[in-house]
């Protein structure tokens, strides 16, 4: 519950989210989404939700990034928007 840290990471989360949906490369979007998930994990650790932070660190930042990369590998990196 350190509010300065909380506000700084919230701002970073916002930048990661905007980056993940505007970058014109799907592999880049997948990696930025991984960074976004990891920032989320830090945010939950600050709020004292350790179980949720642990789950997000393993699920959101780990496995779902791998799923995204696998799906991009099986389809295409090209995107128009």
């Amino acid at each position: 519950m350190i509010w300065e840290l909380d506000m700084a990471i919230l701002t970073l989360v916002l930048f990661c989210a905007v980056g993940a949906i505007t970058v014109k490369d799907l592999l880049g979007a997948a990696i930025l989404f991984g960074a976004y998930s990891f920032m989320m994990c830090l945010l939950w650790a600050i709020m004292g939700a350790v179980d949720v932070a642990f789950t997000e660190a393993s699920v959101g930042a780990g496995v779902s990034t791998v799923f995204f990369v696998a799906a991009v590998f099986r389809t295409t990196r090209r995107t128009k928007d």
């Binding site: 993940a20 949906i21 799907l26 979007a29 997948a30 989404f33 779902s64 995204f68 995107t79 928007d81």
Partner: peptide, 13 residues
């Protein structure tokens, strides 16, 4: 967004 993967990223956000 017109790209399906981008839509899925949006859903997760």
């Amino acid at each position: 967004k017109r790209n399906l993967i981008k839509k899925i990223v949006g859903m997760n956000i």
